[in-house]
Design a protein around this nucleic acid. Structure first.
Length: 232
DNA sequence: GCGACAG
DNA sequence: ATCTTGTCGC
């Protein structure tokens, strides 16, 4: 089963809203996750996020490309799309994935790394949205969620840069990372083809001023802007 | 059965 | 996630 087939299979499941197949798909691909880390130097980081329209199935996906480590905006793209899948904890990728795939086709700059607003391997089946999309798009990726999905952790120290292990099934699946002094930590986990230590380092460097990494924060702004502009 | 539960 | 005003704190 090559990448193209996996992607088509994934999109089919999303369209059919096949919850059972979705879970089986995650169990099947988790053997390919997190993949072997790519040592290549990271120059361009792409943050991704989606905003939703309250009463419809419309979604607004945005990508914000930043040079690294200076974090300058290199390119930004956003699209309007539709989603069939509802939000179900553990199956987020099936709701947001199709729009992400469509969006990525419009991004022209070379991507070295994706940062997703959600979990990587810190997931019940080791297949959070960052891991799944990293695999399907064949790009290194990091999961950076605002809240926890699974696992236990001890509160990290209150200063920026402090972190604590996120433990699940007796394994370290990620870290609760303080990206600013005295703010709630974010949950960082390996997505695809990158190590945890490097992930933490990168996320921290993407937060020179705010709790949320600049690429994701910017993508979030973009998707919300597209939504508000659309409603007029 | 009960509680938890990314966005 | 989205719906929303004021409000507490650096």
């Amino acid at each position: 089963m090559d990448r193209k087939n996996l992607l088509n299979q994934f999109l089919s499941i999303c369209k059919r809203k096949d919850y059972k197949a979705a879970i089986e798909f995650q169990d099947k691909i988790k053997t390919l996750i997190p993949g072997k880390p790519v040592g290549r130097r990271i120059k361009n980081i792409c943050g991704l996020d989606i905003s939703f329209d309250k009463g419809s199935n419309r979604v607004f996906a945005a990508a914000s490309m930043h040079s690294f480590p200076d974090l300058a905006i290199v390119e930004q793209k956003s699209i309007k799309a539709k989603t069939e899948f509802p939000y179900i904890p553990g199956l987020l990728a099936f709701r947001e994935g199709p729009a992400i795939v469509e969006l990525i086709e419009k991004v022209k700059s070379p991507v070295d790394l994706f940062i997703f607003d959600g979990q990587g391997i810190a997931h019940p089946r080791g297949a959070g949205i960052a891991s799944m999309m990293g695999l399907l798009l064949d790009k290194p990726s990091i999961g950076c969620a605002k809240t926890r999905l699974i696992g236990e952790f001890k509160e990290p120290q209150n200063n920026k840069g402090s972190s604590a292990d996120l433990i699940y099934n007796n394994r370290i699946v990620g870290k609760a990372l303080r990206t600013r002094d005295n703010v709630k930590p974010v949950f960082v986990s390996v997505g695809f083809k990158i190590g945890l230590k490097e992930s933490l380092d990168i996320i921290l460097k993407c937060c020179p001023k705010y709790r949320i990494p600049e690429p994701i924060r910017e993508a979030h702004r973009l998707s919300n802007k597209l939504r508000s502009d659309y409603k007029r």
